[in-house]
Simulated scan of single mutants.
Amino acid sequence: MDRRQSILEAAERSFSMFGYKASTVDQIAKIANVGKGTIYTFFANKEELFSEIITNLVKETKIAASKAIKEDRPFYENLHYALYEVIEFRKTHQLAVKLSQEVKEMNTSPVTDALQRIEKAVLSFVQRELDKAIEKGEIKDCPTDIVAFMMVKLYLALIFDWERDNPAIQKEKMLEVLEMFVMDGLRKEV
């Protein structure tokens, strides 16, 4: 493994364990088993290192969503499974969990920006899927940016907010709710 990759992996471990604010370049260097100067040969500062890790996290999030899409399923099922996978990924990925905690507890600006980058990527993915469904005639024409925002926020609320005081909603029940409240409104009249 090359040193740059080793540094990235060490930084991700540090950010996952201690958060962005508490992680230092010294700490990352120790985890990577390199000198602090070696880190600076590849990255100008902690912020640049963090930015690259978030770029990779965005890619991983998009991959999780894309893997959920199956050509033989209806649009709304694909979108449901893609959103569900993204949120499950966010709930289980150690770095994503730690960053969410840090935003809640300390509202660290670079972390807030990072989570917004991830959310924008998800919104963009959903909007593209909506645009494709309109082109294929699967749903009626709609403002896809607004519908994407609404769908993502609905999923986030049903999974994170709902689960604070209620039992988790099963994947099949979420699909039923999505179809009833979102897809019935988007369905093209025949």
Results as ranks from 00 to 15, higher is better:
L154H: 06
M174V: 04
A82H: 00
A133T: 02
L130F: 08
S66G: 08
V58C: 04
N166Y: 13
L115E: 10
W162M: 03
A68I: 05
V177W: 01
E102M: 07
K173W: 00
K98V: 05
A65R: 04
A168K: 14
S100L: 06
Q170L: 12
T55Y: 08
Q101A: 09
E71T: 06
Y76S: 09
E135V: 13
V58Y: 00
N56R: 12
K59T: 08
M150I: 11
N78T: 02
E105I: 13
A68E: 04
I139H: 01
P143D: 04
F89R: 14
E163G: 12
A168H: 10
E176H: 14
Q116E: 15
L115R: 10
E119V: 04
E135P: 08
D161Y: 07
V86C: 13
F89V: 11
F160H: 09
A64Q: 03
K67Y: 00
A148K: 01
E105Y: 11
G137Y: 12
L57Y: 01
V58I: 09
M174S: 03
M180T: 15
F125V: 04
P74N: 12
K136S: 14
L156P: 00
Q170R: 11
I139V: 05
D145S: 10
Y84N: 09
D72E: 15
A121C: 06
K59I: 07
E119R: 15
E135A: 14
L175R: 08
T112F: 09
L95G: 05
V97C: 10
Q170W: 05
L57I: 05
E129L: 00
W162A: 00
T112M: 12
A133W: 03
E163L: 07
Q127S: 06
V152Q: 06
V86M: 13
Q94L: 14
T61A: 02
L79M: 13
A121R: 05
K104H: 14
K91G: 02
L95D: 02
M150A: 14
H93N: 15
